[in-house]
């Protein structure tokens, strides 16, 4: 059924309001996620990402608004089509891997030979087959995440909700996680391994029309993995588009300048007037400057103010900059810039 073109978006959310006491975690969010796409929700902690996912997952009823998954609004029916990987690990450490998957399959109405085959397939495909009879507590963080992904995919959901799935994982585990999700992973090893020949396991994101909504505050992850990205800020959706669309109109490069003590303020107001310079922000002794062309800006900086500069770093503009441009807040470090 997921192959037939359907006008219904995979996820459709309208005017969602969720309040905890006086604080509105979601303040009128509307979002449509087309089938078979990967959509990122980008925002700092507390911007409403987790709340939005838990409402879509049917874990929490909204005070106002409507959620539909493939046109289905009723909660138990909706949940049948949705797989969730929560932000924190949600596993029983004393159960074995096999038991974990079996229980989940039973909850979703799978059973018998079908369930056995599906569990074997997933354990095999996720490089967990050898550990199947071991307790979950013996798994590393990366393998636990992998098990949780396998569990979410077990009932063959149409929609997958991922809440910061790679937070806290080492880079190898992160890569392995996404390789698995894209269905192109080589038989994975504990450290992730190098990608070998692509294998089709029926898990391929685009191949089978699986729709993914990914909450993240990892800008690179969002740029790399998502077709479109939505910015959440204080429970509101402030922008949505492809990474390229969202970055359109931004200055090209971002220069981070660590200044000698006490020189940041003066340097900041000096460079702000230069041609090709966009936003200048400072935190303690660090200046962030967005510029059209770092190769013109940096020589000038050293000609005029070398004595004030301790170190610089040049980066191409990212969604982080786009987010800042729109909201004046940072995605990854809500407590203040400078700390990054």
């Amino acid at each position: 059924m997921s192959d037939t073109p359907s006008p219904a978006p995979a996820i459709s959310v309208r005017e969602l309001v969720v309040a905890y006491g006086d604080r509105r975690a979601l303040d009128g969010v509307s979002l449509a996620v087309p089938q078979g796409t990967v959509v990122g929700l980008l925002g700092p902690n507390g911007s409403g990402k987790s709340t939005l996912l838990s409402v879509i997952a049917g874990l929490r009823p909204p005070q106002q608004g409507e959620v539909r998954v493939l046109g289905e609004g009723r909660r138990p029916a909706r949940r049948r089509r949705v797989g969730v990987v929560f932000q924190e690990s949600c596993l029983d450490p004393l159960m074995t891997l096999h038991e974990t998957l079996w229980l989940h399959g039973r909850l979703f109405g799978l059973g018998g030979a079908t369930l056995r085959r599906r569990i074997e397939e997933l354990l095999e495909g996720f490089g967990l087959a050898e550990r199947a009879r071991e307790a979950v507590r013996t798994l590393s963080g990366g393998l636990r995440r992998r098990l949780e992904l396998a569990r979410a995919l077990l009932p063959s959901p149409d929609v997958l909700l991922l809440d910061e799935p790679t937070t806290g994982l080492d880079p190898d585990s992160r890569r392995a996680f996404w390789e698995l999700l894209r269905g192109t992973a080589a038989p994975p090893t504990e450290v992730g391994g190098m990608a070998g020949e692509p294998r089709s396991r029926g898990l391929s994101v685009r191949g089978r029309g699986l729709t993914i909504l990914l909450a993240t505050n990892d800008v690179q992850e969002a740029e790399r993995e998502c077709d479109t990205v939505a910015f959440l800020y204080h429970g509101r959706l402030v922008a949505q588009g492809t990474p390229a669309e969202l970055k359109k109109g931004l200055r090209h490069d971002s220069v981070r300048i660590e200044c000698i003590d006490g020189k940041a303020a003066a340097l900041g107001s000096a460079v702000a007037g230069w041609p090709g310079v966009g936003r200048v922000t400072s935190a303690d002794a660090v200046l962030h400057v967005t510029v059209d062309d770092a190769s013109a800006f940096v020589p000038r900086l050293f000609q005029t103010a070398a004595e004030a500069v301790h170190a610089i770093r040049i980066e191409p503009s990212t969604l982080e900059d786009a987010y800042f441009e729109l909201t004046g807040a940072s995605v990854s470090a809500p407590e203040g810039e400078g700390t990054a």
């Binding site: 049917g58 874990l59 949705v82 969730v84 929560f86 949600c90 596993l91 989940h104 569990r151």
Partner: peptide, 18 residues
């Protein structure tokens, strides 16, 4: 309580049951 603290309760509650 163990299921709530381990997160398993959440996993149960997003299954297709009331």
């Amino acid at each position: 309580y163990q299921d709530r603290d381990s997160g398993m309760l959440k996993v149960f509650l997003v299954s297709p049951h009331s």
